[in-house]
């Protein structure tokens, strides 16, 4: 990649030979009751299906202030896991992630509860991302306006359409600007009007945040909004460089028939919209 004068570039994220291993206990649903587990524990029988998955295997790169980096790769290539370790949510089993300031994932869904009303969830979600009660009072109207769910804000969230829920979640998550913004396939939720608004908001967040990481399968989105892209496969970096170059090479390999036109490719956005969002 081309290199501007070294002195002007301030590293914000340094990922140094990071490995991440998931421990797998059981087969997800297997339980077998209290008696079975007591016996297993006492007799030290190996758990059925115990093992580990190496999600990230030795990734190194440095991100600089002002960069917007797209992480691309097939399902299971370790993109989301890498993002979580940059956010400090999962500790690498080997290697180190260094950041300047706090890196935060854009998303609050995990803190919200379907049985509670929209306004209760705004309170809960904002507290979860670390806002103080005063800040919440200040931001409350802006969040409601941005979500655009009107009177529904007083109804339980499980009465919302999926689009309305996604809008409210996005509005809460985007209420705060972290130093390093991590977005996991969060673009293009809801209807067209909301998508425009949320894209504008992400652009604003990106300008305010020092560095942005974006995990997306929408290659058009990566071309459009990222300056740099990192292509991951099987937990390793295949290619790291200017977004257009990396996306070209990626499509060459995975999608040779359907190369999106380089300038302003929108097809990625359209295809994302049909998949459930993870905000």
């Amino acid at each position: 990649m081309s290199e501007p004068a070294a002195e002007t570039r301030e590293p914000t994220v340094v990922v140094d030979d990071v490995h991440l291993t998931y421990r797998i206990v059981g087969k997800g649903k297997q339980r077998g009751g209290a008696a079975a587990s007591l016996r297993r524990t006492l007799l030290r029988e190996p758990l059925p299906g115990q093992g580990s998955v190496r999600a990230v295997r030795g990734v190194s790169f440095t991100a600089y202030r002002g960069e917007a980096i797209g992480l691309i790769g097939p399902n299971g290539s370790g993109k989301s896991t890498l993002l979580r370790s940059i956010a400090g949510l999962m500790a690498p089993s080997q290697g180190t992630v260094w950041t300047r300031g706090q890196a935060s994932l854009l998303g609050v869904a995990a803190a919200m509860m379907g049985g509670m009303s929209g306004d209760q969830n705004i309170l809960l979600g904002c507290l979860a991302i670390g806002m103080t009660p005063d800040e919440i009072i200040e931001e409350y109207d802006a969040i409601c306006d941005f979500a655009g769910i009107g009177e529904f804000v007083h109804l339980p969230m499980n009465t919302y359409s999926s689009g309305m829920g996604a809008r409210l979640r996005f509005a809460i998550a985007a209420a705060r600007t972290p130093d390093i913004l991590l977005i996991d396939e969060a673009l293009a939720t809801g209807d067209a009007a909301f998508r425009r608004r949320s894209e504008a908001r992400i652009r604003k967040l990106r300008d305010e945040a020092g560095t942005v990481f974006l995990v997306s399968h929408g290659l058009g989105v990566v071309r459009e909004s990222c300056t740099r892209a990192i292509w991951l496969e099987n937990g390793r970096i295949v290619m790291d460089g200017p977004a257009d170059d990396v996306v070209d090479a990626y499509q060459e390999k995975h999608d040779p028939g359907e190369r999106t036109a380089r300038p302003n490719a929108r097809s990625g956005v359209a295809s994302r919209a049909q998949e459930p969002s993870s905000v």
């Binding site: 990649m1 290199e3 030979d17 190194s60 999962m90 260094w98 950041t99 300047r100 890196a103």
Partner: peptide, 30 residues
């Protein structure tokens, strides 16, 4: 050449120990 340039080349880190940040101002995530 400064160390930042070396960092840019993705296998940078000549940091002597895992406790020392590769550039000033960086903290270990998490």
């Amino acid at each position: 050449m400064t160390r930042f340039t070396r960092l840019a080349h993705a296998d940078p880190l000549d940091a002597p120990s895992p406790d020392v940040p590769p550039a000033p101002g960086l903290q270990r995530a998490g």
